[in-house]
Amino acid sequence: MCEANVYLIDKEGNEKLLLESVDKLVPSDESIMLENIFSQRKTVKARIKEMALVEHRIVLEEKD
């Protein structure tokens, strides 16, 4: 399997799990749309901070 868990770092620096088993990530100018294998979707105003795909981990950082 090639899905990853996505974590969000908020403005205070706290990291929280945002969505599990994400297999689709679509960035745009203002936000990032995530979709997991269960067809759950979330859109967040964030930027990609780190992608560690061997560890199945993507870290996003909240934008203003």
Score class of each variant (00 low, 15 high):
9 I>R: 06
47 R>T: 13
15 E>F: 05
25 L>Q: 08
37 I>T: 14
52 A>E: 14
44 V>T: 04
37 I>R: 14
9 I>H: 02
31 S>E: 13
37 I>K: 15
46 A>C: 06
49 K>Q: 14
58 I>Q: 04
56 H>T: 09
51 M>I: 14
21 S>F: 13
18 L>T: 03
14 N>H: 07
59 V>S: 03
38 F>Q: 11
3 E>N: 13
15 E>V: 05
53 L>S: 12
4 A>L: 10
6 V>Q: 01
17 L>I: 04
28 S>K: 02
3 E>S: 12
56 H>D: 13
6 V>R: 01
50 E>D: 13
6 V>H: 02
39 S>C: 11
35 E>T: 14
62 E>W: 01
11 K>G: 03
46 A>P: 07
19 L>C: 04
43 T>W: 00
44 V>A: 01
11 K>C: 02
20 E>K: 15
13 G>D: 01
28 S>C: 05
51 M>E: 11
63 K>L: 13
38 F>N: 10
33 M>Q: 11
44 V>N: 01
25 L>V: 15
38 F>T: 09
60 L>M: 05
6 V>S: 01
45 K>Q: 11
47 R>A: 11
49 K>D: 14
50 E>Q: 14
56 H>P: 07
14 N>C: 01
5 N>V: 06
61 E>I: 14
26 V>H: 05
45 K>N: 12
4 A>I: 08
40 Q>W: 06
26 V>N: 08
29 D>W: 08
27 P>W: 08
33 M>K: 15
51 M>L: 10
46 A>Y: 04
27 P>L: 09
26 V>Q: 08
56 H>V: 06
6 V>L: 04
13 G>K: 01
11 K>Y: 06
39 S>N: 13
11 K>E: 09
21 S>V: 09
20 E>N: 11
12 E>V: 00
19 L>T: 03
28 S>R: 02
16 K>M: 04
52 A>Y: 12
33 M>V: 13
26 V>R: 09
64 D>K: 15
54 V>W: 08
23 D>V: 10
39 S>L: 12
21 S>M: 10
58 I>D: 03
48 I>N: 05
17 L>Q: 05
35 E>K: 15
44 V>K: 03
34 L>N: 02
63 K>S: 13
19 L>K: 03
58 I>L: 07
49 K>V: 10
2 C>D: 12
59 V>T: 13
14 N>Y: 06
36 N>L: 07
1 M>L: 09
24 K>A: 12
53 L>W: 13
28 S>N: 05
40 Q>T: 12
28 S>Q: 03
56 H>S: 15
59 V>R: 05
38 F>D: 12
27 P>S: 10
44 V>E: 01
63 K>V: 13
54 V>C: 11
49 K>E: 15
3 E>H: 12
42 K>F: 00
